[in-house]
C-alpha cells in the first residue's frame, strides 16, 4: 500500500521540564491529500518541527491521531513503524549526512538498512546521484561539499527508498537564496516525475510562495489558518499570517 496522504487529527504535545511546561502542539488537525506540496509556515517556536516529527513519530504526540495513507501510525508496533518509516523520507536543515562516509556510501545507507545487496545499492545510488547532478562527487566526503551540494546528497539519499511522502524540515533555511531556489527546483522536478507528497516546514514566505499549493499557518502550537497559498497570501484572515506576510515583504 502506498502511504501518500497525511491525516492529522487533534494532535497535542506538551514538553515538561522541572518547572515549566511548553505546549508545542494544541489540537492540530490537518488533511494533506496525495501528491500535494503542502507548506507549514510559522515563526520559530510555533511548533512546526514538532508537528513534522509527529508525522513519522520521531516525536510521539500526547494524544491525537497520525494517519498516513489510511494507516494509523500510533497503532503500529516497533518493527511495523520501522518499515513504514522507510517510505516516509525526511530531509533536514543541517542535512545530517554521515560525515565519515563518502557521498556514495551516504546514498547507499538507507538501502543498506533495507538489506538490499551491495551491487544493487551502488547502481541505484549512482542513478540517484545522476538525478541530483552530483555523480562526479560520488567519492567525495560531505566536508568537501557546499551546503547546497550536501542537501542534494540528502535528497538523493532520501529518494533511495522510493518514499511516498517527503518531509522537509527547514530544508533550505541554512542556504542562501540562490541555492534555495535550485533546491526548490529540484524538489519540484522530483514532485513532477515521482508524484510524491511533499510537506515543507519553513519560516520563509518566499519558499511557500515558490513551491507550495496549500499552506497552513502555525502559531503558538495551533493552526491559525489553512488554505490555498494564493488565498492565504492575498487575504490573510489570521493575525499570525499577516505578521508573517509583513516580515516576508521586509526581507524582499
Amino acid at each position: 500500500m502506498e502511504t501518500t496522504s497525511i491525516e492529522i487529527q487533534h494532535l497535542y504535545k506538551t514538553y515538561s521540564s522541572q518547572n515549566s511546561q511548553v505546549k508545542a502542539l494544541r489540537d492540530v488537525s490537518l488533511s494533506i491529500p496525495e501528491h500535494e506540496i503542502f507548506g507549514v509556515i510559522g515563526l520559530s517556536g510555533a511548533g512546526k518541527s514538532t508537528l513534522v516529527r509527529c508525522m513519522n513519530l520521531l516525536e510521539r504526540p500526547d494524544s491525537g491521531k497520525v494517519i498516513l495513507g489510511g494507516q494509523d501510525l500510533l497503532a503500529l508496533n516497533k518493527k511495523q513503524l520501522r518499515l513504514c518509516r522507510q517510505k516516509i523520507g525526511m530531509i533536514f536543515q543541517h542535512f545530517n549526512l554521515l560525515e565519515q562516509l563518502n557521498v556514495l556510501a551516504n546514498v547507499c545507507f538507507p538501502l543498506e538498512i533495507r538489506g538490499i545487496p551491495a551491487r544493487r545499492r551502488k547502481e541505484k545510488a549512482m542513478d540517484l546521484l545522476q538525478k541530483v547532478g552530483l555523480a562526479d562527487k560520488a567519492k567525495a566526503y560531505p566536508s568537501q561539499l557546499s551546503g547546497g551540494q550536501k542537501q542534494r546528497v540528502a535528497i538523493a539519499r532520501v529518494l533511495a527508498n522510493d518514499p511516498g511522502i517527503l518531509l522537509c524540515d527547514e530544508a533550505t533555511s541554512a542556504l542562501d537564496p540562490e541555492t534555495t531556489k535550485t533546491i526548490l527546483d529540484l524538489l519540484k522536478t522530483i514532485h513532477n516525475t515521482m508524484g510524491i507528497t511533499i510537506v515543507i516546514i519553513t519560516h520563509e514566505m518566499a519558499v511557500v510562495r515558490d513551491i507550495c499549493t496549500k499552506v497552513a499557518v502555525l502559531d503558538d502550537g495551533a493552526v491559525q489558518e489553512c488554505g490555498n497559498v494564493a488565498e492565504v497570501f492575498h487575504a490573510p484572515k489570521s493575525k499570525a499570517a499577516r505578521r508573517l506576510l509583513l516580515m516576508g515583504d521586509k526581507e524582499e
Partner: peptide, 26 residues
C-alpha cells in the same frame, strides 16, 4: 550529533544499525 541519529531513525534503522553504522562509525 543528534541530527544524524534522527536521520537514521527516520530511515527506519534498527538500534544495532544505529550503534554500529552511525554511532561507532561517526
Amino acid at each position: 550529533g543528534h541530527g544524524v541519529i534522527e536521520a537514521a531513525l527516520s530511515m527506519g534503522a534498527k538500534t544495532e544499525t544505529i550503534v554500529f553504522k552511525v554511532l561507532i562509525s561517526e
